[in-house]
Design a protein around this nucleic acid. Structure first.
Length: 216
DNA sequence: CTCTCGATGTTCT
DNA sequence: GAACATCGAGAGG
């Protein structure tokens, strides 16, 4: 069974927390008890006020306030007037980890089964989709980006500041007892060219060869 | 496959 | 007024 991540997990160095989040499962529970679950396959670390790519580099403002609060809370903002992005606050004031992509999973009994993943990611594509269902490749892309992830899980600014350690509505579970060790790739972060030398930091991490990682 | 562009609203200068 | 941690549609090869 999965274990809900406690605040202790979020209190490590931001880059370490980012890497450790890969392979964990984000869980969203709705009022009717229904759940959406996805394996975290892509993240980026934003390491506080001196990191010029980090929103906190503009100082402690109304928008970035929760990034300066306790670890293990959600920092959510609206981007391009359309999409929301989900971050987890870490211990360092002003630092957070951006969740960029999830591989959707299905709960079958007490087990989690990944959907739309190729054999090299430990699961085969589903068989012929039944009418009304998405094909495997389409399922894999349902949360393959920071905006899409929030769209899929219906996460908006009402979750800004949400305590992820409560195990309600939105939290992260560790199912490592059932998962395979996977290779991690590090690259430059996406869309932060304005940040000078900080744009070169290899603080984007993703699971190699996973079908749900965002495009670029 | 590649590239370009527009949508849309909050935040900060 | 500009910029923005994005995405998908549409045009062209």
């Amino acid at each position: 069974m999965g274990v809900t991540l406690a605040q202790e997990f979020y209190r490590g160095p931001t880059v370490e927390v980012a890497k450790d989040l890969l392979g964990k499962f984000l869980v969203r529970e709705f009022k009717d008890g229904k759940r959406l679950v996805g394996k975290i396959v892509e993240v980026e670390a934003y390491d506080g006020p001196e990191d010029l790519a980090c929103h906190a580099s503009h100082g402690r403002t109304e928008r970035t306030e929760v990034m300066f609060g306790p670890a293990g809370h959600a920092y959510i903002y609206l981007i391009y007037g359309i999409y929301h992005c989900l971050n987890f606050v870490t211990e360092k004031p002003g630092a957070a980890v951006l969740l960029r992509a999830l591989a959707p999973a299905k709960e079958e009994g007490s087990a989690l089964v990944l959907q739309g993943q190729a054999l090299n990611s430990a699961r085969a594509w589903p068989l012929e989709p039944s009418p009304g269902e998405l094909a495997g490749k389409e399922i894999a892309r349902i949360a393959s980006g920071p905006g899409k992830l929030c769209q899929w899980m219906k996460i908006d600014k009402s979750f800004n500041g949400w305590d992820l350690t409560k195990g309600e509505k939105l939290w992260v579970e560790d199912h490592s007892e059932a998962s395979v060790k996977e290779e991690i790739v590090a690259t430059k972060r996406i869309g932060v060219a304005y940040a000078g030398g900080w744009a070169e930091k290899p603080w984007r991490f993703y699971i190699k060869d996973n079908n749900s990682v965002s495009r670029p």
